[in-house]
Design a protein around this nucleic acid. Structure first.
Length: 497
RNA sequence: GGCGCAUUGGUGUAGUCGGUUAACACGCUGCCCUCUCAAGGCAGAGAUCACGGGUUCGAGUCCCGUAUGCGCUGCCA
């Protein structure tokens, strides 16, 4: 039996990182087992579903490099099949028509409503099988339906017995039928509901393993009842622990904003491989403990059995621009930026520089060597791709800003510095050939001649040439920027104004 | 309210059939390196393994209870 798994998001917003991780785990399992990874868009709630969300989901998967097999499927195309299945269950007496008038519920406080009602039912010794229409005669039911009376279709859950399944992550699960209500399969307007739709689609797609969030753990019993009523084989299930916010609440767009959206990471300069790597470590850990893992290594090491059961906290820091997302995610990204093969990094940096009008066509041929050398130098202390266009701007353009604190610290503190730097410029102008070694020699001898510490000149130069207080070795910077630009920037005097 | 699931340092996790100095990564502190900041090296702080009982010679590991969190309990998905 070949493995077939699916990722089935509903397109009611951007792809959030919890969903992205579900997709990742499904994908990993499919690739690991030589099976198929399918994508299904659960857009049955037409009011809330948008094409834009669907696009963002597909883009998100592409960005993470999670390729799917076979055709993309839209659940809304399958309405007739879902209704047919419900009709069949009805005909076989495994479901019944419920003529109770539809209750209007405000989406806002349903939760509260449900609890209040459940509590009340509890006191009265409510029986889940007490629906008066459950045992309505077939004739009567057919007659009322034919007369046009609206009805919902409910599954006739057996009175006795229980459903069982062995979750790959959570272990054996059991639930008595008496705790499961006769769930609605079809709304009174004929619209199929979630639990029916997933089951029918999963059957039709031949899904062998359902890998999804733990929030569906208890729903699984209802779904198994549907599989059984339909006489279809029940797939294996693997439920994933949830990803929570720092205060242990569920991650949500409304409460937590863009940190939970996958596209944010793309837009703020994450390397896909780094984010994928980070995501994989949320709830799962490799047997050997090695954490920096390529896509191939992830596929090779991944096992559903190694997934943990406790919910994971996504530890981002609201109100802290420097640590706007999880520390480990940021660290992972910097790790990738400074250690990944340069030629793989290059296209991403190119896109970043392009977007900021810092890219020059010569970087593709004549200046390619220079570019690679420069990138290799500056990437050592970068955290995201954005840094190439922000902190790294001075390497690609003469139009860059001076950091105020850097100017104060490295330039204004010593009144003679402006003059000294001009002198250094004169000295460097005569250096031949001009490279890191010769520039260092020149600077150090100039320091001796003028009786100042070389550090003063070095730090001053760094701020003059890059606008910043921190960065790579100064002599490397001289070499990368070249004599002309170095000299020109040393003389510019701009930050002193 | 009922049912289910979970609970190891700030965070992510490892802890095999119960034997213990509770391990690793991120973060944090200090030192080294040094022209700055990173990286790297070294050292370190931080966990009464949610709490309370029990079983046992011995429990993070087994059992029971409590608490907390989360989920489901909907003609939402």
């Amino acid at each position: 039996m070949t493995v077939r798994v699916r990722f089935a998001p509903s397109p009611t917003g951007y792809l959030h990182i919890g969903a992205a991780r579900s997709a990742l785990f499904n994908w990993l399992y499919a690739r690991k087992s030589g099976g198929k990874f399918l994508l299904r868009i659960e857009d049955t709630d037409l009011q809330r579903s948008t094409d834009e969300s669907t696009r963002s989901i597909i883009e998100g998967l592409e960005w993470l490099e999670l390729d799917y097999d076979e055709d993309l499927m839209f659940q809304s195309d399958k309405g007739p099949e879902h209704r047919a299945a419900a009709d069949r269950l009805l005909a076989e007496g495994k479901a019944y028509r419920d003529f109770t008038p539809k209750e209007q519920r405000d989406d806002k406080d349903v939760k509260q409503d449900i609890r209040a009602r459940a509590k009340a039912n509890e006191v009265e010794g409510f029986d889940e099988r007490s629906n008066p229409y459950r045992n309505l005669s077939k004739e009567e039911s057919d007659r009322r339906a034919a007369a046009g009376e609206p009805f919902a279709v409910r599954l006739k859950v057996p009175v006795e017995g229980k459903t069982k399944f062995d979750d790959i992550v959570y272990g054996p699960q059991e639930r008595s039928h008496s705790e499961i209500e006769d769930l609605v399969l079809l709304r009174s307007d004929g619209h199929p509901l979630y639990n029916l739709s997933v089951v029918i689609d999963d059957i039709e797609m031949g899904i062998t393993h359902v890998i999804r969030g733990q929030d569906h753990l208890t729903n699984t019993h209802k779904q198994i009842l549907i599989y059984e009523a339909l006489g279809a084989p029940v797939p294996r299930f693997a439920h994933l622990p949830l990803i929570l916010a720092p205060n242990k609440s569920k991650l949500s767009k409304r409460k937590h904003g863009e940190v939970v959206s996958l596209t944010t990471y793309r837009d703020r300069g994450f390397i896909p491989a780094a984010f994928r790597n980070f995501l994989a470590l949320l709830g799962w850990s490799p047997p050997e403990g090695k954490e920096i893992l390529s896509k191939e290594e992830l596929v090779q090491l991944f096992a559903l059995e190694d997934i943990g059961r406790a919910n994971a906290i996504f530890n981002f820091h609201e109100n802290d621009p420097r640590r706007w997302t999880d520390d480990k995610a940021l660290w992972m990204n910097s790790e990738y930026i400074r250690t990944m093969p340069l030629d793989e990094l290059l296209p991403m940096v190119k896109a970043e520089l392009r977007a900021n009008k810092l890219w020059r066509e010569e970087y593709d041929d004549g200046d390619r060597e220079w570019l690679l050398k420069t990138l290799d130098m500056i990437r050592q202390r970068f955290f995201t791709l954005k840094d190439f266009s922000n902190q790294g701007r001075a390497y690609f353009s003469d139009d860059f800003d001076f950091d105020e604190t850097a100017v104060n610290k490295n330039l204004r503190k010593e009144p003679r510095l402006r003059e000294l730097l001009n002198g250094l410029a004169d000295k460097l102008e005569a250096v031949e050939p001009f490279n890191a070694q010769t520039a260092e020699a020149a600077l150090r001898s100039f320091a001796d001649e003028t009786g100042v510490k070389s550090g003063l000149l070095i730090n001053g130069s760094r701020t003059m040439l890059t606008g910043q207080a921190v960065g790579p070795s100064m002599f490397e910077i001289f070499e990368v920027l070249g004599r002309d630009r170095s000299v020109q920037r040393l003389r510019s005097g701009i930050p002193f104004q």
